[in-house]
Design a protein around this nucleic acid. Structure first.
Lengths: 277, 277
DNA sequence: TCATATATGAAAATAATTTTCAACAGTTAT
DNA sequence: ATAACTGTTGAAAATTATTTTCATATATGA
């Protein structure tokens, strides 16, 4: 599946009935748009030309022509990513997983607030200590974040022990920053620890897939991922990748903004040299 | 070089001076035609619109539009993902990171051997014990893998302590499976541990970005990621995501193939219920 | 040199696209 | 329930793009 098709599917629910008809026609007739003018397509879809222009704009194009060209670029051979089944080879599953990851990243682009992201990155840069809490699935993400921040020379620690999380949170001050990671946003222990940190005046950041979750109430800054994985799993596998993408973005942002970072990164690399063949 | 470009070169000698000017401009400005109207391009080439229409017809197209679309289709390499700079907002960086992740996944699709992937997944399913080794960056990936396999009810353990890695490897048998994760493939301790495991007869699997690395020599099965990140980092951030995608694929594959898994996943979920709000 | 064939671009004709606007549907506030 | 608001829609107008026509220019070969 290509980028444009993907985007159409993502925005489908937000479309009006005429736009949905357009989306449906495009899905059912892959590649055909390329040889049609706006009036011809309007007739096919039973809508006005204006609606087609709006449709194109909504997808981020300048107009109908650009939409058409985008379809031409991205090849008509539209693969449709179905669910994963027992007949699939492991490689086919890999392809589907890639597709879903891509989809989740696009969705996260919509749900992630640019201002919050920037504020969170700056808070981390100014924090005296950075505490990162995650459990289960999110523990690996927390560890990844700690690792990256340490490479940049920051005083970052991650905990995947709920006692340690609460203990560490209880000793924080308003100079410190806490990052709570929970896909559901409802992990009791993480919420507790973040709450304690907030009571102590620390800046609290949460990374979650659920906007209406308890962790958000305890957060000064909430970073939302998005993913459509009800299909074949309760596990938020794709939102996890989106979390990592957010972490990568923050990492790069800090490494660009922080003037010491290039030196620090070099120091890190040097320290690891002897560990390699 | 694409079909249309080739044809233009073939017919070049038969063209008049104005048409040659068009051909020259197109060669010097690859891809630019896509965003230009016929009048704009006519001005660029210093010729009349009519000449452009004739030019397109001569190449076998119905008109200017078709020529334009043909260029759009054949010019896949027009991705303009720049590097990350200090002027970028954190959100812009997130967008670039997403783009790179997508790119890396596509590249990995090419470098990953379907047969090896399947073999690795089956070996894991049949392994008595699964040992996963990673250090630094790769420790988080190893932890993630362990977590997923445990959810499926497998006897999986990850170590990010080089002593524990070697110790555990020294006690393995040919019924066991070892997974060594190293972006560079040159991490001494990981290679050592995998080597020990291999000497003991365990099935060894490696996940790495480097086909010609020491770890591959110690592996029965090598799974290669791919990524282009020389641009702004030594860290293999994107290959890391590709590693996780491989892990996700294996997870789903096993959960489809292993008949007990749905029960096990349910048990896992139940065990976590009390931890949530 | 001249007749013929071909190439060219300005302008006219046609077609495609975009904008405007009024009607309408659904939602929220009063 | 009603008013005010918000967003969707397509017909028609306005704009822009493309194609055709045609007069002129240029080259070719007898």
């Amino acid at each position: 599946m290509n980028k444009t098709t993907l985007q159409i599917k993502m925005l489908y629910n937000k479309m009006g009935s005429a736009e949905k008809r357009i989306a449906d026609w495009l899905m059912e007739n892959p590649g055909k748009i390329i040889s049609l003018s706006i009036s011809e397509l309007a007739e096919q879809c039973g809508c006005g030309e204006a609606t087609l222009v709006r449709f194109a704009r909504r997808l981020g194009f300048g107009g109908y022509q650009e939409l058409k060209i985008s379809f031409a670029r991205e090849d008509g051979s539209a693969k449709t990513a179905d669910g994963i089944s027992a007949e699939d080879s492991c490689f086919q599953i890999f392809e589907k997983v890639s597709e879903d990851i891509y989809c989740s990243l696009e969705m996260t682009k919509n749900s992630l607030d640019a201002q919050n992201l920037e504020t969170a990155a700056k808070a981390i840069m100014n924090g005296k200590r950075i505490m990162i809490y995650g459990l289960g699935n999110s523990a690996a993400v927390a560890l990844d974040f700690q690792h990256k921040l340490m490479r940049l020379g920051y005083n970052a620690v991650s905990f995947c022990d709920n006692h340690m999380q609460s203990i560490s949170a209880s000793h924080l001050t308003k100079k410190d920053v806490v990052i709570g990671i929970s896909h559901s946003g409802s992990s009791k222990d993480i919420v507790d620890a973040v709450k304690i940190a907030k009571q102590n005046g620390a800046t609290t950041i949460s990374i979650t897939n659920n906007g209406k979750s308890p962790i958000v109430k305890q957060s000064d800054i909430a970073l939302y991922t998005a993913s459509n994985e009800t299909k074949y799993s309760i596990l938020g596998l794709n939102s996890r990748i989106a979390q990592l993408a957010i972490i990568n973005a923050i990492y790069y942002y800090i490494s660009c903004q922080d003037k010491n970072s290039s030196k620090t990164i070099k120091t890190t690399e040097e320290s690891l040299q002897s560990k390699k063949f």
